[in-house]
């Protein structure tokens, strides 16, 4: 039996193919190619494409964000500069306004004081006039009384009295001695 097998093996040429094996290899390989083509390649390619898109999209998004942030920063800086400028302008204006107000106030106070002064002066003048008038009346009465007593003549009659006083005063003003007294 062993010799049979050796003889059989000697006759066997491994290079001559088994037809069924050739066909089966082709069939199974074709099945594998179809399966790979239908399920595996699309799945992997889709995963690769999605990953590429995600990475590229992420990079683009980051760039956009960066640009936005830069723009916002520039805008904020500009706003800050504007605000500083505005503040300086307002301060300057306030200073000017304050100076103007102080000057106006001073002017008003001066006017007021002048007015009060004028008012006082007028009042004093009026009071003086009043004093002069009342003094004149009192002085007249005193002088009349005094003269009546001196001359013993009743000068109670009012008309006469005032006439005498007038004359007396006129005499006084003219610097002459009252004629009635002589």
């Amino acid at each position: 039996m062993q010799t049979d097998r050796i003889v059989a093996a000697g006759k066997l040429n491994p290079l001559i193919p088994h037809p069924a094996e050739m066909i089966l290899a082709l069939v199974f390989f074709a099945i594998l190619v179809l399966l790979v083509k239908k399920f595996i390649v699309p799945a992997f390619e889709q995963a690769f494409a999605e990953r590429t898109a995600a990475i590229e999209g992420g990079l683009a998004a980051a760039e956009t964000k960066q640009a936005e942030a830069d723009a916002k920063l520039a805008e904020l800086e500009k706003q800050l500069a504007d605000a500083r400028h505005e503040a300086a302008r307002i301060r300057e204006e306030a200073r000017e306004q304050g100076a103007a107000i102080v000057a106006e106030m001073r002017e008003q106070a001066q006017a007021e004081s002048a007015r009060i002064l004028e008012h006082g002066r007028t009042q004093i003048e009026a009071e003086r006039q009043q004093a002069v008038t009342s003094l004149r009346a009192e002085v007249g009465a005193l002088a009349t009384g005094l003269a009546g007593r001196i001359v013993g003549e009743s000068l109670d009659d009012e008309v006469r009295q005032s006439r005498v006083v007038e004359r007396f005063l006129a005499d006084l003003e003219s610097g002459q001695a009252p004629s009635g007294v002589n």
Binding site: A20, E21, L24, A25, F28, F29, I31, L32, L35, V36, F39, I40, A43, F44, Q46, A47, E50, R51, A54
Partner: peptide, 25 residues
Amino acid sequence: PMVQLALSVVLIFTFFYLASRHRAM
């Protein structure tokens, strides 16, 4: 060897199918 051909197709397809199924990022 004929059975091995079929087995290899099953093994390869199963492996790649499971590996490519989720398509995770």
